[in-house]
Amino acid sequence: MASEMSSLGKKKGLLGFLILSITIIWGYAWALMKASLDFMGPFTFSALRFGTGTMTMFLVLLIFKVGPPPKDKWRHLAIIGLLQTTVVFLLVMYGLRFVDAGKSSVLLYSMPIWSSLLAAKFLGEKIQKMKAAGLTFGMIGLITILGWDVLIDQNMTVLTGEVLIILAAISWGASNVYYRKKLKNITNLQVSAYQMLFGTIGLALAAFIIEWGEPLHLTPKSIYYVLFTGVLASALCFTLWFIILNNIDMVTATLSTLLVPVFGMIFGVVLLNEQLTPNIILGSIFILSGIAISQIFKEKPLPQHIQ
């Protein structure tokens, strides 16, 4: 595996293709997540998606002959799984009931802003001037999106969904900071697989408790949604992401993920007939610019486990 990754690093064109493919898949997955709500409850879909992804991830571990992490790290992996998979996707999927897929992807990918703020608080990382400028841009973007909805739309269900997705972004950022504090010498592949396992357990419990007895329509279309988001958007992309991270610097990799909400908005418009209003476009520009600035001037970039 090491030799394969080394040879891949010499093929910049292939790496660029992989990065573009991953971001397109993740952007497309947002439209599928929204569409899945026509067939089942949000928590049931998440449990099925990440259950499928977990099984695929452990198959990947077997293929690459990657053993389990040390037992003393399992508790920390469970906490990351709770923060990053259970909490994030409980909030995101419920929020998607009220918020368009494109706007949701932009709000969730405000995560680096919260990661930076939490890292300053709990890791003692200094917020330099340019990083502060990036955070300011990001906050202006969030206010542009939310403020417009408060003043013009005044739809409390939409606002509630938006707040839930921002809380999901904060939880994702918290999981990254926790990773930095508690987990070292653990490969990204191990972290992705085991946090997904523990996170799926939380999602399954939530689906069982809250959505037991609710309609579950398993059709070719809904099964496709589960398999695509579970196998491709989660397991396969995580594996490719692990390989990419071993071939390029973290800043470049992180900045490439800014394409995800862009594709999320495009697929939302094309597949779900969502509207791109001026506040969404302007707010998105502010958020993506702010994240780019803050990531470029990071001293120690936070690990990214993107789903």
Results as ranks from 00 to 15, higher is better:
191 V>H: 02
221 K>Q: 13
221 K>F: 15
187 T>F: 00
185 N>D: 12
198 F>V: 04
212 W>C: 13
229 T>K: 02
204 A>H: 01
194 Y>C: 10
198 F>C: 08
209 I>L: 08
191 V>N: 05
204 A>W: 00
195 Q>K: 03
208 F>G: 04
215 P>R: 10
186 I>T: 13
203 L>K: 06
210 I>N: 02
201 I>K: 05
207 A>K: 07
195 Q>R: 04
207 A>R: 03
189 L>H: 04
197 L>G: 10
225 Y>F: 15
213 G>F: 07
229 T>D: 08
220 P>W: 03
195 Q>A: 01
221 K>P: 09
203 L>Y: 10
222 S>Y: 06
217 H>G: 11
198 F>K: 04
206 A>S: 14
209 I>H: 01
227 L>I: 12
184 K>Q: 12
191 V>C: 03
212 W>I: 12
219 T>P: 07
208 F>R: 14
208 F>A: 13
203 L>D: 10
202 G>T: 04
228 F>P: 02
213 G>A: 08
229 T>N: 13
222 S>I: 05
197 L>C: 06
204 A>L: 07
223 I>E: 10
191 V>E: 03
208 F>I: 15
214 E>G: 12
225 Y>D: 01
214 E>F: 08
211 E>M: 09
209 I>F: 11
190 Q>V: 09
186 I>W: 00
227 L>Y: 05
201 I>A: 03
189 L>Y: 04
190 Q>N: 11
214 E>A: 15
209 I>Q: 00
223 I>A: 11
212 W>T: 15
216 L>I: 15
215 P>C: 04
227 L>M: 14
208 F>E: 12
187 T>K: 05
187 T>I: 03
201 I>T: 11
214 E>R: 15
184 K>R: 10
209 I>R: 04
185 N>T: 11
222 S>A: 07
184 K>C: 12
200 T>E: 00
210 I>F: 08
208 F>K: 06
215 P>A: 15
189 L>G: 06
193 A>N: 05
213 G>Q: 11
187 T>W: 00
186 I>H: 00
205 L>R: 01
223 I>P: 06
194 Y>T: 08
219 T>W: 09
185 N>E: 13
197 L>Q: 00
205 L>K: 05
